[in-house]
Every structure is written in C-alpha cells, then in structure tokens.
Design a binder for these strands. Structure first.
Length: 259
DNA sequence: ATGACTCAATGTTTGAGA
C-alpha cells in the first residue's frame, strides 16, 4: 500500500496538479492539509472519478484537512477530541479514517506565529490534545500513523540554516518536547529519503528562490506506531511536485508499506 | 534548470503562512 501526506495550499487552486499527481504516483491513501475551501467547495467529484473517496473537515478560508482513499474509508472522525479553540473557533485541523487496514490521522498543526504569541500556546495545547488522541490508538495491533504538516522541524538538521531560526518558532525546545511526548505514545518518526541533496526537506518558502537554493525545512512528518513502522518498505519526499508553475510550497511525503 | 510569494475573502487590501 502507498500512503502519502501533502499540504496542498488550496485544494481548489491545486486541483489540476493534485489529479495529475494522483494519476502518476498512484497512492492508495492521501492525507491533505490546507484545503483552504469550504466543505461545499471541496472537489469531491473529480477525485471520485479517479477512484478516491474523501473524509474532510473544512470551513472556508484557512486550514482544512482531508483523507482520500481508494481502499475504503471506515470509522471516520472529523475533529480532534478536546482540541482547543482559537479566538473562540475550533478549527478544522484533523480528520481520521481506517483505510485498507491502516488507521490514519491527517493533521494540520497550528503554526504558532511567534514565540510568546497566543497562537504559540494554542499550538502547544493542540499538540497535547493530539498526544491524548494518539494514546488511544498507537498501542494497538492495527498499523496506525499520524501524518501531516506538524509545523515543527524535529532537529536542527531539519532546517536549511539553523542560525536563521534563532528565536523563531518551529525549532524551539517546547515544540520539540511536544513531538517527543507524541513519540512516547508509541510512535516513531518515519524519516523519508530525499530525492536530491542530503536533507529530506518538505517545505520551501515561495520567496527569494527558496526552492532553487534548497532553503527548506522538514516539517511534514509521518509518525507511525510499531506495526506501521515495521511494515514500511520505502519513504521519500517527492520534490518533483514542488517544481514548475503553480506548485504548493510543500512537497508530498510518500510512504510504501507492506500491508 | 528548480527562478525572485501565494492564497482567499474581510476583496483593489489584508491577514496568514513559516
């Protein structure tokens, strides 16, 4: 089975690239983030024509997540239990489903904006809610993984120049401690191989030639439990999908698993 | 070449992304 995660930065704008990528890559399950559309505007029909069912959580302008599957969608969940609200709103940042014998969550972790900003506290609280949800599922026999845009670089090697990140979000001890707590539920970081260069970056800023200069970050992660991790046969970042006209600023992470 | 930001709505500017 082939499973992928991709922050598409607007599923409506990216639809032509998404459908072409689905046809060329042929994943069985895809976790999407940053749909940036209402539930009504989600392009369910063109995806169905390619054989994919979808479970989504979306409410308009920002955020929005989905799981696409062509191997079944069972036991869908469309919100993270006990997720904190921000400005009084519970944002659509997590969905789950069981697809072909694998339990997956698609997550879009809050950005945090700046250290000390209320959004940063929100990020940490949201990650704690995710940890509690993972505790319920990570210990089972079923292959289980939380895939998505975590907005955290797990190590200093996961950013292109650590000295540029002093005082910034995405690299702090508090954020990395939240990731460590998530791993302690029984999950491991499935690190993909890069197709070029040494580091498997998954995001490059649109500005200032970020991609051509490979000024990237690894912030799109696959956290799998033992049955999942032990079945992984390959994992890579599809940087080809970041090239050309009109890409997302994130590249997909693709995992092949012997299930 | 991989090329100098992009997206959606609050819409001709703003907020967010990271």
């Amino acid at each position: 089975m082939r499973i992928a995660t991709w922050n598409v930065n607007s599923v409506t704008v990216r639809l032509p690239r998404l459908t072409a990528w689905l046809e060329s890559t042929a994943p069985d399950v895809v976790c999407l983030q940053e749909l940036k559309c209402s539930a009504e505007a989600f392009p369910a029909e063109p995806l169905r024509e390619l054989g994919y069912e979808a479970v989504i959580s979306a409410d308009g302008r920002w955020n929005g997540v989905a799981v696409l599957s062509r191997v079944g969608l069972a036991a869908p969940v469309t919100a993270l239990p006990d997720a904190p609200a921000y400005d009084g709103v519970r944002e659509p940042r997590a969905v789950a489903a069981t697809c072909g014998g694998i339990r997956v969550w698609s997550v879009y972790v809050p950005n945090g904006r700046e250290v000390g900003h209320p959004h940063f506290e929100y990020k940490l609280e949201w990650l704690d809610a995710l940890r509690k949800a993972a505790e319920q599922e990570a210990g089972g026999e079923l292959p289980f993984a939380v895939l998505g845009d975590y907005n955290i670089a797990p190590t200093d090697a996961d950013v292109w120049d650590r000295s540029r990140f002093d005082g910034a979000t995405h690299v702090t001890e508090a954020e990395r401690a939240a990731l460590a707590a998530l791993r302690e539920t029984g999950l491991a970081d499935v690190v993909p191989r890069p197709l070029k260069y040494d580091q498997p970056f998954t995001y490059w800023d649109y500005r200032e030639l970020g991609f051509p200069k490979n000024r990237g970050m690894r912030i799109d992660l696959v956290y799998g439990n033992a049955p999942f991790e032990e079945a992984v046969s390959d994992a890579y970042v599809d940087r080809e999908a970041r090239k050309g006209k009109g890409p997302s600023d994130h590249a997909p992470v693709v995992v092949d698993i012997a299930v």
